[in-house]
Design a protein around this nucleic acid. Sequence first.
DNA 1: CTGTTAGCGCGTTCAG
DNA 2: CTGAACGCGCTAACAG
Lengths: 341, 341
Amino acid sequence: MAVTTKDIARIAKVSQSTVSRCLNNSPLISEKTRQRVLKIANDLQFEFNASARSLSTNKTNTIGIIYPDDYMEFGVNLYFGSLHTQIREMLEKKNIDLIVAFKENRYTKTDTIRRLVSQKKVDALIIAISELEQESVEFLANSSIPYIFLHFYQQVPSLKSINQIYADHLYGGYIATEHLISLNHKKIVCLTSSDGHEYHLRRQGFKKALEKNNLKYSDNLFIYGDRSFESGYEIGYKEIDKIKEYTAIFVHTDMMAFGLIEALKEQNIKIPEDISVVGYDDIELANYFRPNLTTVHQPKEEIALLGTERLLELIESENKEKSKEVVVKPTLVIRKSTKEI
Amino acid sequence: MAVTTKDIARIAKVSQSTVSRCLNNSPLISEKTRQRVLKIANDLQFEFNASARSLSTNKTNTIGIIYPDDYMEFGVNLYFGSLHTQIREMLEKKNIDLIVAFKENRYTKTDTIRRLVSQKKVDALIIAISELEQESVEFLANSSIPYIFLHFYQQVPSLKSINQIYADHLYGGYIATEHLISLNHKKIVCLTSSDGHEYHLRRQGFKKALEKNNLKYSDNLFIYGDRSFESGYEIGYKEIDKIKEYTAIFVHTDMMAFGLIEALKEQNIKIPEDISVVGYDDIELANYFRPNLTTVHQPKEEIALLGTERLLELIESENKEKSKEVVVKPTLVIRKSTKEI
DNA sequence: CTGTTAGCGCGTTCAG
DNA sequence: CTGAACGCGCTAACAG
């Protein structure tokens, strides 16, 4: 049987409330009884009953994180892995547990965010998905729970502003393209994805760079894939004629870039001699594939760090009104898949 | 403010316990009041307060999973990704939340398993690490909480047996080696890891296959790395002279195999023409790297499935006495990195 | 079928 | 400084 404060009280011959005070470092306790009680608690390996404590303090010491449904898909997983590491690190320091979840239960079709909050299972929520129904966003905004969006960048008109931190994808698209242009490439094509607002922004960055450099822009410059290795590979064959007309290609996910490169290699097209390739994400794999991929580094560590910091601040300060948006800039990592012409 | 059963009771003009009964599908409630109460609860988007409920039922509807500390390292992450997917799937059906944790808090140096159990934060525990202090194992065995070890295969002498499910690594080592032998390879070397009991077993399987086929075995046939891509790559250079003496190499992790292959390619050694390579793990990446890797498939989906199934069974049946060990066999996936000579 | 009561383990007044 | 008493929200006897 688990040991309770009552048990300790009986053994120490004090009241249960005294035990509670000792264990919570209340100042109004004599040093002597504190020592005695602490010793007993220690000997018995006492731990508070989390439910009871939560019930009376209204704090669970648990936070929830909502991951995208395709979290476990290859590539996505890689992307979030390092984010998760950062978050873990910070929570560990505060001894906060982490419930991982997805926005919807696929069987019962219930909204997990709403459930976790309403059930008071978590003290705060990290939303690590980039798209969320307005309804859920409003629910959160109207609830009293602290939350932070990582990777969210859509305005919800009915709300002034929400706590969020995200990368500047337009800028990422811009610097990738600028890099190619600086290497004298003038014929640049783009492999992107039709779903996901971030890809839209990356396309805009691409366009902006072209226009700034007086290169001709057209919607025709986009080839659409689904972000996966397989998709890149397939397009490397299907669209080979089109791709051959260009000297450089900007691919909107590293995984697609790897697939594409593989297909091109198989068709005896050399990277970067025949065509330069820039990826996006900078997943760890970019170091392993040959040629090492030049890519846009997503500042995931920074996002996780700043986001979690902010969240902990919100939890502790009870000062939930001030909402804050932070935009962080991606950077370009130049490796071996791009070359001057 | 959150709505409680008391609020509903007030509105419905019944007692709080009636509300509780309705919401818990108690048979002793008239259809009429049930409908009325349910409607109100629904309109108010009522959810039970998890802490209060746990406190009185002694169930949290949350289970914990303990991952290895290097979870986020590349490769390990990949390995556990698909395991996680399976687990999620099953828990979702039962509407059980998942707390992910590591066995020790690196800051406070406290034992997470003990804490989660003692605090009663979880109803059950999945231990997805392959090594654990005997002390913790005993703690679990003596606690009344259901738990299951995935990937554990060490006997704890003081205990009769524990709930565990694991892959047969000796067999895995055996079939990989047998495959090479069946392709007429007689000079086979092995790239393994010194830490981790599973690698020891894989080496034993290797030895067994050699001996069964009357091939000379010696401890000299082992090269030791640290399981990473980098390690495989480095060894591909450092040990090149040794490796060249063999026609096949059995590498104990896919990631090391990829690193090794890369290094060999750079030295103009062709796979599989010059040397056949068999990996171990069958991570998804094995489909992407060229040549596609022949490897031993870890039955991770099966482990996750059987393990979680068993755990849910334990939770529901309260029948925790019967412990059970399940061993699952890995299989060989033949791709392009091995060749007959 | 329904209401009343006690209790889960802990924090927190309120007295002393 | 300490103890008695109450409440957090819910389930589970026990009476009717």
